[in-house]
């Protein structure tokens, strides 16, 4: 035992990640089929699709663990499509990895490619060729939120597994179990709130749980405090400034928030959306709906690949106009 283990703490989302397929309690159908692959020591390319925090990565890692044993990391190349700079980098890494030695009794190694739906169509074509080129020695597990964003030729080469959102009782009981392991007092209503806030995303739920526990007990108040602290109050100010026609001030604040604190455009929008429907904001109901439409459209454009700051600034300009029409006063 190393000395560092004494003081080192980990993120619970990782600390309590199931290591083996046997430990997985959800997605029973998928697990059953994957266990067959382990038994036969053979599998096709796989595509895991489903919402965030439903266990796609965990399942893939557990599958690797069960296939290769404790040394599994040697036989798995983990890549995240949103972090790798282009398909050329991915190609080089895969090439190098495919060349190295094979594990004893399993005739292939695994390339785990997360967020594959973030790849452009061109990059996916190149990926398809890679999958064919190294099929003798390598299997790909692709992970995606939206299977529709994976090109048809790749889908047809993969066994597709669809992960469904976790049931509330599964999430809550897991959170409770973690609290027991950590000797942290938790209140049932707080766990309900965590589930609501994280909308079924297990990783997000565990992260919130850990921060709430760091404040003391896991209570409703602490959960809200964590969520409030994690979401800067500046966004409310930005909404108020824009609605009351102080466009340039709102813009400058927004820019500072994004550049200095590295908050992504989509995060800003999610929180703006919350603010627009908060009771503190005095707005005619129909204006709230109109704003929600604008915010949604803005998020759509950003997800399409547009620039965060341009899209948000355009939204602020619309807010200023709406605020003027509605006679908004902060």
């Amino acid at each position: 035992m190393s000395a560092s283990e004494k003081f080192a703490e980990l993120l619970w989302a990782e600390k309590y990640r199931p290591r083996s397929l046997k430990e997985l309690v959800n997605q029973e159908e998928i697990v059953k089929r994957l266990m067959k692959f382990v038994e036969e020591k053979n599998m096709p390319h796989l595509l895991f699709a489903g919402p965030p925090g439903t266990g796609k990565t965990t399942t893939a890692l557990a599958l690797a663990h069960d296939l290769y044993g404790e040394d599994w990391r040697k036989y798995v190349l983990e890549l995240n499509a949103s972090d790798e700079r282009g398909i050329a980098v991915i190609r080089t890494k895969v090439k190098e990895f495919a060349r190295s030695k094979l594990p004893g009794d399993v005739p292939f190694k695994i390339v785990l490619l997360d967020e594959a739906d973030n790849m452009t169509a061109d990059a996916q074509q190149a990926l398809r060729r890679l999958m064919e080129m190294y099929v003798e020695t390598t299997r790909f597990i692709l992970i995606a939120n939206y299977p529709s964003k994976i090109i048809e030729p790749i889908q047809s080469r993969c066994a597709v597994f669809r992960f469904t959102p976790l049931k509330k009782e599964d999430v809550v009981s897991r959170l409770k179990w973690i609290c027991q392991q950590e000797n942290v007092v938790c209140h049932d209503d707080a766990l309900d709130v965590i589930y609501e806030i994280s909308s079924g995303d297990m990783r997000k739920a565990i992260n919130i749980l850990q921060a709430a526990a760091a404040l003391g007990e896991v209570t409703v108040a602490h959960v809200y405090k964590v969520v409030g602290l994690a979401h800067p109050k500046e966004i409310r100010e930005i909404v108020y400034l824009a609605l009351s026609g102080k466009f340039t001030e709102a813009r400058d604040k927004l820019r500072t928030l994004m550049v200095n604190y590295g908050i992504s455009g989509v995060d800003v929008l999610k929180q703006m959306h919350r603010e627009v429907f908060s009771a503190d904001l005095k707005l005619p109901e129909e204006v709230r709906v109109e704003l929600a439409d604008y915010i949604g459209e803005t998020e759509f454009r950003i997800v399409e690949g547009a620039d965060d700051e341009i899209q948000l600034t355009a939204l602020l300009a619309k807010m200023a106009l709406l605020g003027k029409k509605a006679g908004f006063r902060a």
Partner: peptide, 8 residues
């Protein structure tokens, strides 16, 4: 790297 997620 620790949590098997993207940097974003």
């Amino acid at each position: 790297t620790h949590e098997h997620i993207s940097m974003a």
